[in-house]
């Protein structure tokens, strides 16, 4: 897929802090700068607690940012009002991780999918019903499913309903927050294929959040790696896997077990010591310094700049 030149979304110095009491601040997202191009899939990876979900949620206005801004088609999304706000809420949608918790058990599938259509006044009566059937078809379900309740469906089918709900309002941009991690392997492939087909058909832009790097590599055009609230590396999916620059990315890539016995037998792993430190009052300097095998004195003193080392390959590390 060719990448359009103009960014659909620009994230500038975005911060999202949470007060966790007793003067402690959890810096979930700290000065993140990213652009999401029209029609691309930007993968966002990192371990639990690194702030990837918070970033996704802040972009679609589920959170107010502490600082910085998010521009969607050039406009600051957190300052939108009235008609423009409704328009943004329609254009930016989200697919959630847990297909069991994200569907209202008391609503039928038709009502779940139709809710957005009603709110935005897109279709009425016959047309509305037709549209719901069409959406069900689009995600691989059929109209017999329309009057059933979520508990009658399997995990993969529920995720399809979640996708149909997001598509109902004809969005341009979808945040997919770990859309496949709760599903079985064979069902994961079905959902990923569906998401990619829909992207081509409907010219969607995705922010694909996940911790399964091999799947992210497959679906994404570019990948951003987050660690403790900071984006440490950003590159095309190819470059990131062929020549990861940040020591954390290198460790993360080497840690994934590859489903090929020979590769596994030969592989030298970079084992990281310890766990991800708490994002509450994170360390000064580079957040990764404590676990980094290349750490120098400067790493614990100054936060490294996020710079473009090669074309379209950004990294925040004092080694370079």
């Amino acid at each position: 897929m060719s990448m359009a030149e103009n960014p659909l979304i620009e994230i500038k110095n975005l911060q999202k802090y949470f007060n966790v009491g007793r003067g402690a601040v959890l810096k979930a997202v700290d000065n993140v700068n990213l652009q999401i191009m029209e029609g691309e899939t930007l993968g966002l990876v990192g371990e639990s607690g690194c702030g990837k979900t918070t970033l996704g949620r802040t972009i679609v206005r589920l959170y107010e940012p502490t600082g910085g801004e998010v521009l969607f088609e050039g406009k600051n999304v957190h300052k939108l009002q009235g008609q423009e706000l409704r328009e943004f809420n329609r254009k930016a949608q989200m697919i959630f991780q847990d297909p069991y918790a994200s569907l209202n058990p008391r609503m039928t599938v038709a009502d779940i999918i139709g809710e957005g259509i009603d709110i935005h006044g897109l279709y009425k009566n016959r047309e509305r019903t037709e549209r719901i059937y069409e959406l069900l078809n689009l995600v691989g379900l059929n109209k017999e499913h329309a009057n059933r309740f979520p508990h009658e469906f399997s995990g993969g089918q529920r995720q399809r309903i979640g996708i149909a709900r997001a598509l109902a309002v004809e969005p341009k941009f979808i945040v997919c927050d770990e859309p496949i991690s709760a599903l079985d392997v064979s069902i994961q492939a079905q959902v990923v294929n569906l998401l990619m087909e829909l992207q081509q058909k409907l010219k969607l832009t995705y922010l694909f959040i996940a911790h399964d790097l091999s799947m992210v590599k497959y679906v994404s055009d570019r990948i951003a790696v987050m660690y403790l609230g900071v984006v440490v590396e950003l590159a095309t999916s190819e470059d990131l896997h062929k020549s990861p620059l940040h020591p954390y990315t290198q460790a993360l890539l080497s840690a994934i077990p590859i489903p090929d016995p020979e590769t596994e037998r030969k592989k030298k792993r970079i084992l990281l010591e310890g766990d991800v430190p708490s994002p509450i009052n994170p360390p000064e300097g580079c957040r990764f310094a404590k676990r980094c095998r290349h750490a120098k004195p400067v790493c614990t003193e100054k936060q490294p700049e996020f710079k473009e080392l090669e074309k379209n390959h950004f990294v925040a590390c004092h080694l370079y």
Partner: peptide, 18 residues
């Protein structure tokens, strides 16, 4: 085996799903 992406699988190909 085919429903997991191998490292060299590129985006133009679909994952085999059951």
């Amino acid at each position: 085996l085919m429903s997991v992406p191998t490292p060299d699988l590129d985006k133009s190909k679909r994952l085999a799903s059951i």
